[in-house]
């Protein structure tokens, strides 16, 4: 039976601990040491606005009838022999539901499990919403839990580093402006061996198309730049790439719900397009 603290109206029953293979990630293991219940409570209440205006979160939780149609839509659930702890409804139940029910009064260890569920066992692919009889947006709910985890710093190290890079340089992999321009010129030279007089125009004002690659392309996958240059030149497109920061279409801030970095990345691309008077923007595959 759940014990209920009459004074605070908060259940104090122990949460269900999931049986998973342990995975070491500094982003979880180290940050969890600095967390306290007070810190978590403050962040949860700030993001979810519990007690004041949590209708956006309460409405889907109270509409859900636990029909489990979302379960068979989830590749995590099907890939683990229909283990119910991987079902989308269970992921909401074990994260957002508990946080609201306990008004954010949870232990750091519980938050670590929540972070693993939302970052490492869900892709926010929205397939479950397609089969929900009420069309509840489960990806949005889990996304907001990602936001709580991000503000607490409970994010896998690799993706947090890439978000820091976007925050500082507006590209994913700490490339400098010099590296970027050099790579484009080097690729232009390479492709010239195959296609005559290929150009990768940099910062061309008034072009029809601005192409925005992913940060990994100039860093480790330059063949994408070469192929794009071939296609654009053979098709005779008036195209360009931006020389200034804001050429990278990767948006890790969106994945971890770092809204501040997310909007700066998008704005960087649009600002560049406006500066160069571009007609259309083509992002990468």
């Amino acid at each position: 039976m759940a014990e209920v603290s009459v004074k605070e109206g908060v259940e104090t029953r122990d949460w269900i601990e999931l049986k998973r293979k342990p995975v070491a990630d500094i982003g979880f293991d180290e940050t969890v040491k600095n967390l306290t219940t007070e810190k978590i409570e403050k962040v949860v209440n700030a993001v979810l606005n519990i007690g004041k205006n949590a209708a956006r979160f309460m409405a889907p939780l109270e509409t859900c009838i636990h029909c489990a149609l979302c379960s068979t839509a989830c590749h995590w659930y099907l890939s683990h022999d229909k283990d119910p702890t991987y079902a989308p409804v269970a992921k909401v139940k074990m994260t957002l539901w508990e946080l609201i029910k306990r008004k954010g009064k949870v232990s750091p260890e519980f938050m670590k499990q929540v972070a693993r569920i939302v970052f490492c066992e869900c892709n926010l692919c929205r397939r479950c919403s397609m089969y929900c009889p009420f069309g509840l947006d489960i990806a949005y709910q889990l996304g907001m839990v990602r936001r709580i985890c991000f503000i607490l710093g409970l994010v896998p190290q690799n993706i947090l580093d890439q978000t820091h890079s976007l925050s500082a340089t507006l590209n994913q992999l700490w490339l400098t402006q010099g590296d970027w321009i050099d790579t484009m010129q080097w690729q232009e030279e390479e492709v010239r061996a195959e296609i005559k007089n290929v150009r990768i125009p940099i910062d061309k004002e008034g072009a029809d198309v601005m192409w925005c690659p992913l940060g990994t392309e100039p860093k480790v996958a330059t063949y994408h730049i070469a192929r794009t240059a071939k296609i654009m030149n053979v098709a005779g497109i008036d195209w360009t790439v931006s020389a200034q920061d804001g050429w990278d279409s990767a948006n890790m801030g969106m994945f971890i719900r770092d809204m501040e970095t997310m909007q700066r990345v998008v704005r960087g691309i649009y600002d560049n397009a406006m500066r160069l008077k571009i007609k259309r923007v083509v992002l990468t595959e």
Binding site: K21, S79, C120, I256
Partner: peptide, 29 residues
Amino acid sequence: EHNFCCNGGGGGNAIGPPWKRNRCEGARV
């Protein structure tokens, strides 16, 4: 639009090498 996710989206790949095994096991479908 009914196809399953590749299990790399939504930051699935970007969470990094420690989770690669976890990710591949989740993509058995």
